[in-house]
């Protein structure tokens, strides 16, 4: 049944992916180290109200950077892209080895979530090059997550348990993965927004000198906040759909569409928190930093749901395959 050589190949790709992402992190760090503070030109961008509106410097938002930094940034992006390819190969090989969709246990599911996050970051960085500068803050957690997944969640390739043999696996788990990966990037953007906006405040009050910190090389606070919001707006309907699809599946697999199983409860909590985030963005008194905190709480809830609920609590969703 299980094609062992493909399974081994998948594991090899996993290691290669971690290596490529780590190199990308190094390149991103070097880019930040060599890049000039992004502050001046980004402020212009914020002033004209658009991160898409080309910043004064040039069409790709990275003009004004020393050529060396730009080259390093390019290298980092290429490494990230290659990593995403081998990352995809991890899942494809797993799927082929077991002849099924490669998200039947926690190892596969979390690997897929991380891939979605990397791809989401890649899309953002290609569409708005100023966002490339958050690369190290996305790829850093990504590498950490991959190492932890490899160390603690790894399971051998195997067949699916009976309850998972349903076409709803494709619908429910794929969309949940997609939503999670997108929320991951959104949460990081909000975290960076919180850091950057506090830094800006301290620069404004003269507590610290502007242009001295790594934070000055991030996109502007406004751009980060907007990115966080836009990705959350993109992720929210997907997550809503994933929850509904899960309920439909639960109805045929477990005999009820909603039973407050711990996983269901935390999916609901996450949904409520993200709805609150979208609300907070348009509620006076909550705009800016408070709403960004809500988004960060959302990310914490999502991660908690993945780790705690699968590993610690027992429920119907205990397909983790980790003992």
């Amino acid at each position: 049944m299980i094609d062992e050589s493909l399974a081994t190949l998948s594991d090899t790709f996993f290691s290669i992916t971690v290596a490529l992402y780590s190199l990308a992190v190094v390149a991103f760090c070097a880019e930040l180290a060599f890049g000039r503070p992004a502050r001046n030109r980004e402020l212009v961008a914020a002033g004209t109200g658009g991160l898409d509106a080309a910043p004064a410097g040039g069409p790709d938002g990275t003009a004004g950077e020393p050529a060396r930094a730009r080259r390093l940034g390019l290298v980092a992006m290429v490494l990230t892209g290659l990593g995403a390819l081998t990352h995809t190969a991890v899942l494809v090989c797993r799927g082929l080895a077991a002849d099924r969709l490669p998200w039947g246990n926690m190892y596969e599911f979390s690997t897929a979530v991380v891939l979605v996050a990397v791809v989401a970051y890649g899309v953002l960085a290609v569409r708005a090059p100023a966002l490339r500068h958050i690369g190290v803050f996305v790829l850093g957690p990504v590498v950490l997550a991959m190492v932890l997944i490899g160390l603690f969640l790894y399971v051998e390739t195997g067949p699916l348990v009976a309850a998972l043999r349903s076409s709803w696996l494709a619908v429910h788990v794929s969309t949940a993965t997609l939503g999670f990966g997108i929320f991951f990037v959104s949460g990081i953007a909000s975290l960076l927004y919180l850091l950057r906006s506090r830094h800006d405040e301290r620069v404004a009050t003269g507590e610290v000198a502007g242009g001295s910190s790594l934070l000055d090389r991030l996109p502007t606070a406004a751009a980060l906040d907007r990115t966080a919001h836009r990705t959350a707006v993109f992720g929210f309907p997907i997550w809503t759909f994933a929850v509904i699809a899960g309920a439909i599946w639960a109805e045929s697999a477990w005999g009820r569409f909603w039973g407050w199983d711990p996983k269901e409860t935390w999916a609901f909590i996450a949904w409520v928190v993200y709805a609150a985030y979208l609300h907070a963005r348009t509620t006076s008194g909550w705009r800016g930093r408070p709403s960004a905190w809500v988004n960060v709480v959302g990310l914490v809830v999502m991660i908690f749901n993945l780790l705690f609920v699968n590993l610690v609590s027992t429920g119907l969703h205990s397909y983790g395959g980790v003992s």
Binding site: W260, P262, T265, W266, F268, I269, V272, V273, A275, A276, H279, A280, T282, T283, S284, G285, W286, V301, V309, S313
Partner: peptide, 19 residues
């Protein structure tokens, strides 16, 4: 809407002991 926001949070927090 601010009240709705607070109630949304309460709902989320209230579900936690249930899990």
């Amino acid at each position: 809407m601010r009240t709705a926001l607070v109630l949304l949070f309460l709902l989320a927090v209230a579900s936690i002991p249930g899990s």
